[in-house]
Amino acid sequence: MNVFRLLGDLSHLLAIIVLLLKIWKTRSCAGISGKSQILFAIVYITRYLDLITTYISAYNMFMKIIFIATSIAIVYLMYVKFKATYDHNHDTFRIEFLLLPTLVLALLINHEFTIVEILWTFSIYLESVAILPQLFLVSKTGEAESITSHYLFALGSYRGLYLLNWIYRYYGENYYDLIVIVAGIVQTVLYCDFFYLYITKVLKGKKLQLPA
């Protein structure tokens, strides 16, 4: 465990806490894509199946349980408890366009052709594009609340910090995993446009509004 990975994990955790607090305090999930949240829940459930078979560390186990539980909780809050506030008219991205290609890619490019490994690979590919429905929703409405922007910034930073972790591990331990590195680059690149708007607008106290 190095500092980049720890910061990445904490940033990821912070993103989830910010999102949960936003929904809970405002009693509303307006501006949040339920499609992206469903994809994230699928990502964590398929990736952390190894909770049952492999013990890595208490930290690892704790975080996995937190990510699975909170992703399911968010989907529950959006589709059941605060369903009336869910912005389904704008959340129209077709998730099968992400689910099917990532599944096919996982079947073709993986470390080992076993069910657990293919699901793990699928989760890595799916995670890299899971934010697209959310970005699509922001582009459709043309704006995002600042709390939603903070959530997206923390969520986007997490894989960016993991990229630094992989560079560090490559030089320090000669460890690398091309599947996660390429997917992590794709994932981080998808946030670049948002990062630019966040730094130039939200951090200066303005609302994130897309140019008309």
């Binding site: 990821h12 492999t54 470390h111």
Partner: peptide
């Protein structure tokens, strides 16, 4: 290259 089914990262 890591072993399959032993992913230590989140």
């Amino acid at each position: 290259v890591p072993d399959a089914e032993e992913h230590d990262e989140l």
